[in-house]
């Protein structure tokens, strides 16, 4: 079936609800409205208010009660309406969700999924365009993944729900209703915590995830026309990182550029640059370069395209890498 990313997530959530009676969805406006992005459209109607739960307007409450539900044997999948509204729940996520297994010496697992629409480019007002992934990837006990296309969305959400670890699940909101793609329900998906080469190339490796995968693929297309061959890796998992495919690629190309919408300073790119430098120092022809959001708050939407790494800024970094 051909689905948008939002519809693919919807189908994945539906299947998870069907497969496991312990799966519950909880969030603001996810019931009758189907979520502000319609990702949960129709699910409350089909699975009832016991399983698709409209919560009071309180993110700490949503995640905190999900902890209790998980302790009682449920597998809560919570929706944070927008990236910028996860912070009221930050304490519950970092101090409780992330540490429960550790504190209980494994007696109290925390199989929870925290879905967060993330990233910018939708012309929104403040707090609706943020990329908080590094804050969660920096937190031991949490796993963090980002999907970039409908097929991955369909499989990854089910795999995240099946995971016995808490997973922060990032959804590129700009792409929710963008292009449709084929989703094969009979396919065997790659493991959740794995990265993938999505375009083969030989001159430079571009590492992307979530919304920047599309930017990277377009840049690779443009670069190919000018005789430069870019390999694009969709990281998919941000914590843990799946380094082998990344390192294998960089050893071949000798060059790496990381692109994310999040602020560059101490973003995922910093960790990747460090790991690549440690692991393939002698293969590198250039330092690992990072392209990302500036180290400022997210700007007003009329100039957000300047903040977001676009095709030109990525190609500029690729040129700098190649010229090194």
């Amino acid at each position: 079936m051909r689905l948008t990313l939002a519809k693919a997530l919807n189908a994945g959530l539906r299947r998870a609800l069907e497969d496991d009676p312990k799966v519950l969805l909880m969030g603001e406006d996810i019931g009758r409205l189907g979520g502000v992005f319609r990702v949960t459209d129709g699910l409350q109607k089909d699975f009832g208010e016991d399983r698709v739960i409209d919560s009071p307007l309180a993110e700490s409450g949503i995640v905190g009660t999900a902890v209790g539900l998980a302790l009682r044997g449920y597998r809560p999948v919570v929706e944070i309406q927008f990236d910028g509204f996860v912070y009221p729940a930050y304490d519950q996520i970092v101090s409780q969700v992330a540490k429960m297994r550790y504190r209980s010496r494994g007696r109290s697992p925390m199989p929870m999924v925290i879905r967060i629409p993330f990233g910018g480019g939708i012309g929104a007002v403040e707090h609706h365009s943020e990329s908080p992934e590094a804050q969660f990837a920096h937190t031991p006990g949490l796993k963090v993944v980002a999907c970039s296309n409908p097929a991955d969305a369909y499989w990854m959400i089910q795999q995240a729900i099946a995971s016995d670890d808490p997973v922060v699940f990032l959804e590129p909101k700009r792409q929710y209703h963008a292009d449709k793609a084929e989703v094969d329900e009979a396919a065997t998906p790659p493991p959740l915590f794995s990265s993938r080469v999505v375009r083969a190339g030989s001159d430079v490796t571009v590492l992307a995830y979530g919304p920047t995968v599309r930017t990277a693929l377009r840049a690779a297309e443009a670069a190919a026309g000018e005789g430069r061959s870019m390999e694009v890796v969709d990281l998919r998992t941000l914590s843990p990182l799946d380094l082998p495919p990344v390192l294998e690629s960089v050893r071949r190309t000798g060059r790496a550029v990381v692109v994310h919408e999040a602020h560059v300073n101490l973003g995922l790119g910093a960790e990747l640059a460090a790991r690549i430098t440690e692991e393939c120092f002698f293969s590198l022809e250039a330092p690992v370069l990072r392209v990302g959001g500036f180290d400022t708050p997210y700007p007003a939407s009329r100039i957000e395209e300047h903040f977001l790494p676009d095709l030109d800024r990525l190609l500029d970094a690729v040129d700098r890498s190649l010229a090194f």
Binding site: N265, F294, D295, T296, P297, P299, A300, R302, I303, H306, F307
Partner: peptide, 26 residues
Amino acid sequence: DPDPLAIFEQVYAEVPDELVAQRDGY
């Protein structure tokens, strides 16, 4: 529309050199 370089304004009272460099680079 605002000047794109407004992105870098008023993040701090005392602007770090690194941010100045980022602004100038852009």
